[in-house]
Design a protein around this nucleic acid. Structure first.
Lengths: 158, 158
DNA sequence: TCTTGACCTAAAGCAATATTGAGGTTTTAC
DNA sequence: GTAAAACCTCAATATTGCTTTAGGTCAAGA
Protein backbone atom coordinates (compact mmCIF):
# COMPACT_ATOMS: atom_id res chain seq x y z
CA UNK A 1 0.00 0.00 0.00
CA UNK A 2 1.49 3.33 -1.02
CA UNK A 3 1.71 6.23 1.31
CA UNK A 4 -0.97 8.35 -0.25
CA UNK A 5 -3.23 5.30 -0.19
CA UNK A 6 -3.41 5.94 3.50
CA UNK A 7 -5.47 8.94 2.73
CA UNK A 8 -7.12 8.02 -0.54
CA UNK A 9 -8.48 4.72 0.68
CA UNK A 10 -9.00 5.23 4.36
CA UNK A 11 -9.67 8.96 4.34
CA UNK A 12 -7.14 9.33 7.09
CA UNK A 13 -4.27 11.76 7.17
CA UNK A 14 -0.85 11.32 8.72
CA UNK A 15 0.67 14.20 10.61
CA UNK A 16 3.03 14.95 7.74
CA UNK A 17 0.16 15.14 5.29
CA UNK A 18 -1.76 17.46 7.55
CA UNK A 19 1.36 19.60 7.91
CA UNK A 20 1.82 19.91 4.15
CA UNK A 21 -1.83 20.58 3.43
CA UNK A 22 -2.38 23.03 6.25
CA UNK A 23 0.92 24.84 5.98
CA UNK A 24 1.96 24.41 9.60
CA UNK A 25 4.91 22.43 10.95
CA UNK A 26 4.53 18.94 12.33
CA UNK A 27 5.79 20.22 15.67
CA UNK A 28 3.03 22.80 15.65
CA UNK A 29 0.41 20.09 15.15
CA UNK A 30 1.85 18.20 18.11
CA UNK A 31 1.72 21.43 20.07
CA UNK A 32 -1.88 22.18 19.13
CA UNK A 33 -2.85 18.66 20.12
CA UNK A 34 -1.13 19.02 23.49
CA UNK A 35 -3.04 22.27 23.99
CA UNK A 36 -6.36 20.65 23.12
CA UNK A 37 -7.03 22.47 19.87
CA UNK A 38 -7.01 19.42 17.63
CA UNK A 39 -7.41 15.70 18.19
CA UNK A 40 -6.14 12.48 16.64
CA UNK A 41 -6.11 8.77 17.23
CA UNK A 42 -3.22 6.36 16.79
CA UNK A 43 -2.66 3.56 14.34
CA UNK A 44 -1.12 0.19 15.24
CA UNK A 45 2.35 1.70 15.13
CA UNK A 46 1.45 4.58 17.48
CA UNK A 47 1.40 7.15 14.73
CA UNK A 48 -1.16 9.93 14.68
CA UNK A 49 -4.06 9.71 12.28
CA UNK A 50 -6.46 12.54 11.54
CA UNK A 51 -9.79 12.94 9.83
CA UNK A 52 -9.88 15.53 7.06
CA UNK A 53 -11.84 17.68 9.48
CA UNK A 54 -8.59 18.68 11.10
CA UNK A 55 -7.62 20.68 8.03
CA UNK A 56 -10.55 22.99 8.55
CA UNK A 57 -9.80 23.27 12.24
CA UNK A 58 -6.20 24.27 11.59
CA UNK A 59 -7.36 26.76 8.99
CA UNK A 60 -9.77 28.25 11.52
CA UNK A 61 -7.07 28.38 14.16
CA UNK A 62 -4.76 30.30 11.87
CA UNK A 63 -7.50 32.70 10.85
CA UNK A 64 -8.49 33.28 14.46
CA UNK A 65 -4.88 33.96 15.40
CA UNK A 66 -4.76 36.71 12.81
CA UNK A 67 -7.52 38.43 14.73
CA UNK A 68 -5.22 38.55 17.72
CA UNK A 69 -6.92 35.84 19.76
CA UNK A 70 -4.69 33.73 22.02
CA UNK A 71 -4.73 29.97 21.52
CA UNK A 72 -6.55 29.41 24.81
CA UNK A 73 -9.52 31.45 23.60
CA UNK A 74 -9.50 29.68 20.27
CA UNK A 75 -9.45 26.36 22.07
CA UNK A 76 -12.42 27.38 24.18
CA UNK A 77 -14.32 28.53 21.12
CA UNK A 78 -13.58 25.28 19.32
CA UNK A 79 -14.84 23.37 22.35
CA UNK A 80 -18.31 24.74 21.65
CA UNK A 81 -18.39 22.78 18.40
CA UNK A 82 -20.46 19.58 18.51
CA UNK A 83 -18.65 16.48 19.67
CA UNK A 84 -20.46 13.76 17.81
CA UNK A 85 -20.83 15.01 14.30
CA UNK A 86 -18.90 17.13 11.88
CA UNK A 87 -19.55 20.82 12.48
CA UNK A 88 -22.17 22.29 10.20
CA UNK A 89 -21.99 25.59 8.39
CA UNK A 90 -24.18 27.00 11.15
CA UNK A 91 -21.68 25.88 13.78
CA UNK A 92 -18.87 27.69 12.03
CA UNK A 93 -21.07 30.72 11.53
CA UNK A 94 -21.66 30.92 15.25
CA UNK A 95 -17.91 30.88 15.89
CA UNK A 96 -17.18 33.47 13.27
CA UNK A 97 -19.88 35.74 14.64
CA UNK A 98 -18.19 35.96 18.03
CA UNK A 99 -14.81 36.54 16.44
CA UNK A 100 -16.27 39.20 14.20
CA UNK A 101 -17.21 41.14 17.30
CA UNK A 102 -13.68 40.77 18.62
CA UNK A 103 -12.36 42.02 15.33
CA UNK A 104 -14.73 44.96 15.25
CA UNK A 105 -13.66 45.93 18.74
CA UNK A 106 -9.99 45.73 17.82
CA UNK A 107 -10.51 47.66 14.63
CA UNK A 108 -12.43 50.33 16.50
CA UNK A 109 -9.69 50.54 19.12
CA UNK A 110 -6.94 50.90 16.57
CA UNK A 111 -8.90 53.43 14.57
CA UNK A 112 -9.48 55.53 17.65
CA UNK A 113 -5.81 55.22 18.49
CA UNK A 114 -4.82 56.39 15.03
CA UNK A 115 -7.06 59.43 15.23
CA UNK A 116 -5.82 60.28 18.69
CA UNK A 117 -2.29 59.87 17.46
CA UNK A 118 -3.02 62.54 14.87
CA UNK A 119 -4.43 64.91 17.42
CA UNK A 120 -2.24 64.30 20.44
CA UNK A 121 1.21 63.19 19.45
CA UNK A 122 1.06 65.10 16.21
CA UNK A 123 0.71 68.35 18.06
CA UNK A 124 3.13 67.35 20.77
CA UNK A 125 0.84 68.15 23.65
CA UNK A 126 0.08 64.90 25.45
CA UNK A 127 -1.27 66.78 28.42
CA UNK A 128 -1.49 64.33 31.26
CA UNK A 129 -4.95 65.26 32.47
CA UNK A 130 -6.62 65.94 29.14
CA UNK A 131 -5.19 63.73 26.44
CA UNK A 132 -7.29 60.63 25.72
CA UNK A 133 -4.13 58.84 24.64
CA UNK A 134 -2.70 59.26 28.08
CA UNK A 135 -5.93 58.37 29.84
CA UNK A 136 -7.72 55.58 28.02
CA UNK A 137 -8.96 54.58 31.49
CA UNK A 138 -11.36 57.48 31.76
CA UNK A 139 -14.38 55.24 32.10
CA UNK A 140 -12.83 52.93 34.68
CA UNK A 141 -13.24 53.48 38.39
CA UNK A 142 -10.57 55.13 40.49
CA UNK A 143 -8.95 51.81 41.21
CA UNK A 144 -6.83 50.22 38.53
CA UNK A 145 -3.69 51.22 36.69
CA UNK A 146 -3.13 54.42 34.84
CA UNK A 147 -1.33 57.70 35.29
CA UNK A 148 -2.22 59.67 38.39
CA UNK A 149 -1.56 63.23 39.35
CA UNK A 150 0.52 63.67 42.44
CA UNK A 151 0.24 67.43 42.67
CA UNK A 152 -2.87 69.45 41.90
CA UNK A 153 -0.70 72.04 40.22
CA UNK A 154 0.51 69.58 37.66
CA UNK A 155 -0.76 70.37 34.20
CA UNK A 156 1.53 69.12 31.52
CA UNK A 157 4.68 67.19 30.97
CA UNK A 158 6.45 70.11 29.42
CA UNK B 1 14.03 68.16 52.68
CA UNK B 2 10.77 66.34 52.01
CA UNK B 3 10.41 63.73 49.37
CA UNK B 4 8.43 65.74 46.90
CA UNK B 5 10.98 68.52 47.25
CA UNK B 6 13.21 66.27 45.22
CA UNK B 7 11.00 67.00 42.31
CA UNK B 8 9.65 70.45 43.09
CA UNK B 9 13.00 72.00 43.73
CA UNK B 10 15.37 70.03 41.56
CA UNK B 11 12.92 69.05 38.80
CA UNK B 12 14.09 65.50 39.16
CA UNK B 13 11.95 62.44 39.57
CA UNK B 14 12.68 59.29 41.52
CA UNK B 15 11.76 55.96 40.00
CA UNK B 16 8.77 55.64 42.28
CA UNK B 17 7.45 59.04 41.26
CA UNK B 18 7.83 58.17 37.60
CA UNK B 19 6.03 54.91 38.24
CA UNK B 20 3.07 56.62 39.90
CA UNK B 21 2.82 59.37 37.34
CA UNK B 22 3.23 57.16 34.29
CA UNK B 23 1.18 54.25 35.54
CA UNK B 24 3.83 51.59 34.99
CA UNK B 25 5.55 49.50 37.64
CA UNK B 26 8.99 50.37 38.97
CA UNK B 27 10.26 47.03 37.69
CA UNK B 28 9.00 47.96 34.24
CA UNK B 29 10.97 51.21 34.33
CA UNK B 30 14.09 49.24 35.24
CA UNK B 31 13.29 46.92 32.38
CA UNK B 32 12.81 49.74 29.87
CA UNK B 33 16.07 51.26 30.97
CA UNK B 34 17.90 47.96 30.51
CA UNK B 35 16.40 47.76 27.03
CA UNK B 36 17.52 51.24 26.14
CA UNK B 37 14.09 52.88 25.91
CA UNK B 38 14.60 55.37 28.70
CA UNK B 39 17.60 56.81 30.52
CA UNK B 40 18.47 58.05 33.99
CA UNK B 41 21.40 59.16 36.05
CA UNK B 42 22.20 58.29 39.66
CA UNK B 43 22.29 60.41 42.79
CA UNK B 44 24.94 60.10 45.47
CA UNK B 45 23.18 57.06 46.94
CA UNK B 46 23.02 55.23 43.58
CA UNK B 47 19.33 55.85 43.12
CA UNK B 48 17.88 56.62 39.70
CA UNK B 49 16.90 60.16 38.86
CA UNK B 50 14.90 61.19 35.81
CA UNK B 51 14.05 64.39 34.03
CA UNK B 52 10.38 65.03 33.52
CA UNK B 53 10.97 64.17 29.89
CA UNK B 54 10.81 60.52 30.79
CA UNK B 55 7.10 60.81 31.47
CA UNK B 56 6.44 61.69 27.88
CA UNK B 57 8.70 58.92 26.68
CA UNK B 58 6.89 56.33 28.76
CA UNK B 59 3.57 57.66 27.52
CA UNK B 60 4.79 57.33 23.95
CA UNK B 61 6.06 53.82 24.59
CA UNK B 62 2.68 52.75 25.92
CA UNK B 63 0.85 54.33 23.02
CA UNK B 64 3.18 52.74 20.50
CA UNK B 65 2.71 49.36 22.12
CA UNK B 66 -1.01 49.67 21.59
CA UNK B 67 -0.33 49.87 17.88
CA UNK B 68 1.29 46.46 18.09
CA UNK B 69 4.89 47.61 17.80
CA UNK B 70 7.50 45.55 19.67
CA UNK B 71 9.72 47.34 22.15
CA UNK B 72 12.76 46.97 19.91
CA UNK B 73 11.09 48.98 17.17
CA UNK B 74 9.94 51.57 19.64
CA UNK B 75 13.47 51.82 20.98
CA UNK B 76 14.81 52.33 17.47
CA UNK B 77 12.21 54.98 16.76
CA UNK B 78 13.02 56.79 20.00
CA UNK B 79 16.70 56.71 19.07
CA UNK B 80 15.91 59.04 16.17
CA UNK B 81 14.99 61.75 18.66
CA UNK B 82 17.62 64.45 19.18
CA UNK B 83 20.23 63.72 21.83
CA UNK B 84 21.12 67.14 23.03
CA UNK B 85 17.86 68.96 23.48
CA UNK B 86 14.35 68.12 24.47
CA UNK B 87 12.37 66.79 21.51
CA UNK B 88 10.24 69.37 19.78
CA UNK B 89 6.68 68.96 18.61
CA UNK B 90 8.07 68.38 15.13
CA UNK B 91 10.22 65.53 16.43
CA UNK B 92 7.20 63.81 17.93
CA UNK B 93 5.21 64.46 14.77
CA UNK B 94 7.81 62.63 12.74
CA UNK B 95 7.57 59.61 15.02
CA UNK B 96 3.82 59.58 15.00
CA UNK B 97 3.72 59.82 11.23
CA UNK B 98 5.62 56.55 10.83
CA UNK B 99 3.47 54.82 13.42
CA UNK B 100 0.34 56.11 11.73
CA UNK B 101 1.33 54.16 8.64
CA UNK B 102 1.82 51.03 10.72
CA UNK B 103 -1.56 51.55 12.25
CA UNK B 104 -3.24 52.08 8.92
CA UNK B 105 -1.72 48.88 7.62
CA UNK B 106 -2.89 46.93 10.65
CA UNK B 107 -6.35 48.41 10.46
CA UNK B 108 -6.57 47.57 6.78
CA UNK B 109 -5.43 44.02 7.45
CA UNK B 110 -7.94 43.45 10.20
CA UNK B 111 -10.74 45.00 8.19
CA UNK B 112 -10.00 42.74 5.26
CA UNK B 113 -9.89 39.79 7.62
CA UNK B 114 -13.27 40.70 9.07
CA UNK B 115 -14.86 40.94 5.65
CA UNK B 116 -13.36 37.65 4.58
CA UNK B 117 -14.58 36.12 7.80
CA UNK B 118 -18.08 37.17 6.84
CA UNK B 119 -17.79 35.65 3.40
CA UNK B 120 -15.77 32.54 4.03
CA UNK B 121 -16.29 31.17 7.51
CA UNK B 122 -19.79 32.52 7.69
CA UNK B 123 -20.85 30.35 4.78
CA UNK B 124 -18.78 27.42 5.96
CA UNK B 125 -17.03 26.85 2.67
CA UNK B 126 -13.35 27.58 3.24
CA UNK B 127 -12.48 25.93 -0.03
CA UNK B 128 -8.77 25.30 0.02
CA UNK B 129 -7.96 26.58 -3.43
CA UNK B 130 -10.33 29.52 -3.62
CA UNK B 131 -10.85 31.06 -0.21
CA UNK B 132 -8.71 34.16 0.42
CA UNK B 133 -8.75 33.35 4.11
CA UNK B 134 -7.04 30.08 3.44
CA UNK B 135 -4.62 31.55 0.94
CA UNK B 136 -3.45 34.97 2.06
CA UNK B 137 -0.20 34.02 0.33
CA UNK B 138 -1.57 34.44 -3.16
CA UNK B 139 0.88 37.14 -4.08
CA UNK B 140 3.94 35.41 -2.70
CA UNK B 141 6.14 33.20 -4.80
CA UNK B 142 5.76 29.44 -4.83
CA UNK B 143 8.29 29.03 -2.09
CA UNK B 144 7.32 29.86 1.44
CA UNK B 145 4.73 28.53 3.83
CA UNK B 146 1.09 28.05 3.14
CA UNK B 147 -1.32 25.29 2.28
CA UNK B 148 -0.42 23.22 -0.74
CA UNK B 149 -2.42 20.76 -2.76
CA UNK B 150 -1.00 17.28 -2.80
CA UNK B 151 -3.45 15.85 -5.30
CA UNK B 152 -4.74 17.65 -8.34
CA UNK B 153 -8.16 16.16 -7.69
CA UNK B 154 -8.42 17.86 -4.33
CA UNK B 155 -11.07 20.53 -4.28
CA UNK B 156 -12.49 21.06 -0.89
CA UNK B 157 -12.20 19.97 2.68
CA UNK B 158 -15.71 18.65 2.81
C1' DT C 1 16.35 -7.06 3.21
C1' DC C 2 18.01 -2.87 3.90
C1' DT C 3 18.05 1.85 3.95
C1' DT C 4 15.96 6.04 4.28
C1' DG C 5 12.43 8.97 5.52
C1' DA C 6 8.66 9.71 8.51
C1' DC C 7 7.25 9.27 12.97
C1' DC C 8 7.38 8.96 18.32
C1' DT C 9 8.25 11.25 23.28
C1' DA C 10 10.15 14.28 26.53
C1' DA C 11 12.75 17.99 27.60
C1' DA C 12 15.08 22.06 26.57
C1' DG C 13 15.49 26.40 24.23
C1' DC C 14 13.99 30.85 22.30
C1' DA C 15 11.95 35.63 22.01
C1' DA C 16 9.21 39.07 23.96
C1' DT C 17 7.57 41.41 28.01
C1' DA C 18 7.59 41.73 31.98
C1' DT C 19 6.98 40.29 37.43
C1' DT C 20 8.78 38.33 41.71
C1' DG C 21 12.10 37.33 45.19
C1' DA C 22 16.28 37.50 47.95
C1' DG C 23 19.41 40.07 50.23
C1' DG C 24 21.25 44.46 51.08
C1' DT C 25 21.45 50.01 51.11
C1' DT C 26 19.45 54.64 51.30
C1' DT C 27 16.12 57.99 52.33
C1' DT C 28 12.35 59.76 54.79
C1' DA C 29 9.47 60.51 58.64
C1' DC C 30 8.65 60.78 63.39
C1' DG D 1 18.06 58.03 66.44
C1' DT D 2 15.37 54.69 64.67
C1' DA D 3 11.98 52.36 62.02
C1' DA D 4 9.67 52.10 57.82
C1' DA D 5 9.44 52.98 53.10
C1' DA D 6 11.80 53.27 49.01
C1' DC D 7 15.56 51.98 46.48
C1' DC D 8 19.47 48.89 44.66
C1' DT D 9 21.20 44.42 41.87
C1' DC D 10 20.92 40.06 40.10
C1' DA D 11 18.63 35.94 39.23
C1' DA D 12 14.66 33.31 38.72
C1' DT D 13 10.00 32.75 37.23
C1' DA D 14 5.84 33.40 34.18
C1' DT D 15 3.33 33.47 29.73
C1' DT D 16 2.59 32.65 24.83
C1' DG D 17 3.67 30.10 20.88
C1' DC D 18 6.35 27.66 19.09
C1' DT D 19 11.12 25.13 17.38
C1' DT D 20 14.98 22.24 18.32
C1' DT D 21 17.35 18.38 20.07
C1' DA D 22 18.16 13.74 21.54
C1' DG D 23 17.36 9.22 21.34
C1' DG D 24 14.77 5.86 19.57
C1' DT D 25 10.74 3.27 16.50
C1' DC D 26 8.13 2.43 12.33
C1' DA D 27 7.09 2.25 7.46
C1' DA D 28 7.90 2.47 2.44
C1' DG D 29 10.47 1.72 -1.57
C1' DA D 30 14.36 -0.52 -4.33
Amino acid sequence: MSKSDCERIHKQLSVGEVAKRSGVAVSTLHFYEAKGLIASWRNAGNQRRYTRDVLRRVAIIKVAQRTGLPLASIRDALKTLPEGHKPTAADWRRLSASWREELNARIAGLTQLRDQLDHCIGCGCLSLDECPLRNPWDELAEQGPGPHLLDPDEESLD
